[in-house]
Amino acid sequence: MPETILTVTQLKKYFPIKSFFGRVKNSIKAVDGVSLSIERGRTYGLVGETGCGKSTAGRLILKLLPATGGRIFFEGNDITDLSEAEMRPYRRKMQIVFQDPYTSLNPCKRIGSILQEALEIGGVENRAEREERAVDILNKVGLPPQHFYRFPHEFSGGQRQRIGLARALVQNPSLVVCDEPVSALDVSIQSQILNLLMDMQREFDAAYLFIAHDMSVIRHISSRVGVMYLGVLLEEGDTDELFGNPAHPYTKALLSAVPSVKRREMAGRAISGEIPSPMNAPAGCVFCGRCPHRSEKCEKTRPRMRKISPGHSAACVLCG
């Protein structure tokens, strides 16, 4: 059995809403009890619509945001309550690739120094070694060495995403959070970057937490998938099982809304309504407002994740 790199249990993030006098009036439950684990060299796909809390979850896991509740275990160690200084040795092993390749690179720095800076912070003291590793990683992500002294504005979106990935991988991390890394790219560039991500995973044996809203991209790259809605995981399973036998009504609705080049007609399938504001999330099942199968029970109690088959579970009263 492969080694588990990351486990989070009941992860929560509430953003308080304060009144004019600073009293907490209410809170936005951006992430409300998410549990998942990722194995070495595997990809966990976290999918959901805008505002479902998938990016917040990614940031909580890297401790870029403090969690309100829950525990984070990285390579077997509980890192939930570590201070910034105590976190430093772990930082090298947990990296992130951002969605927007235009704002995630420092425009005043050359590519070479962006990569070397990451190594310097990661504790590589030998200057020659830093340079060698930076040139090496640039080569691996498919950029010629003459780009070493160029500035970010000289590159296209796809090339910048390669640089972002190089910066994450140069320290040989065991976990990379990929926060919508291909959604800002054109179709032909998107497939180049997806191929590169998979090649690099094989080479570095890193675990990916791949956050995206595109179901077909998630299916292609992930070995395991979690579907999020309003801060809650609604369904989780191995990719083939989840896409082959979706159990939760939301997963089914999401899958049927994705257009396909194989269909020549729109099926009458759009679920009505929109994601409610996380400020007034329903007390019961978070999806009950839009669910075609809702009953009274759904509005009162929030269903727990229940096992449907080995490695596949869903949070719905109709399942399991």
């Binding site: 179709v187 497939s191 180049q192 997806l194 191929n195 299916r219």
Partner: peptide
Amino acid sequence: LGLVRSIPQLEGPKPERLYAIEGMV
């Protein structure tokens, strides 16, 4: 042809690698 082939699919077998158009516009 490249555009059609480079889209990841929701159904059917998954290719090991996606078809990619090399280079950029």
